[in-house]
Amino acid sequence: MRRRHFLTVSVASVGGLLIYSLDRRPHRVLAQERLSLGSIRIDLRHFTESEALDVAAAAARILPSDESGPGASEAGVVVYIDRQLAGPYGRDKYRYSVGPFAEGAPEQGYQGRESPRDIYRQGLARIAGMARLQPAAQDQLLRTLEDTLFFNLLRTHTIEGMFCDPMHGGNIDMIGWQWIGFPGPRMSYRDEIEQYHGLPFRPKPLSLAQVLGKRVKPSEEE
């Protein structure tokens, strides 16, 4: 049994407190009951707390929280990555992983033996202590990794965690969808598809569970 790890984050840093209006201007809502919590603890399924903090710090440099809007921190990207690595994806269920393994042409695709978990294990060794560095030093470290498999996977996962359905752990309160103006799953655009030509259609996003009125089991829980 693995020892339980938690990610402890300040409520001020996660989604739900930043609400984006339809014209994408951020409004900070200071809900008293949330502030009184001070911090929340998120159950980790794969990472240790220090690993989670390093991955979160790296993801926050890929999609930083800045004047253009919320980033990986507010969306809870690290929670998404933690759950993916703990689940079937992390252990390579979606890949033909039978040997022999050999180096191929780029057009033959990834031929490595390493699973996503293995690639993160190697990458985590390279970014150990990242969370304690200043942003400029974090960027400098990431630049040395730009060509690695790990960095490319982390970049992909950061985008996924920013825009996944919230059932997967990222995109908390649909903060990523609000930011880009994606409505999420929606049953019909029959009335809008020929009306909004050249005009933005930006309804408040709903998650799959909200649209269906029930919980759907995500693949990482298989």
Binding site: Y94, Y96, C164, M167, L208, V216, P218, S219
Partner: peptide, 22 residues
Amino acid sequence: LDDMDELDYAIRLRMMQDIADE
């Protein structure tokens, strides 16, 4: 009804032949 999820269907490819098998 449950499938409007980009991750599980469009990226993890839930409807495709299991590539781990063949």
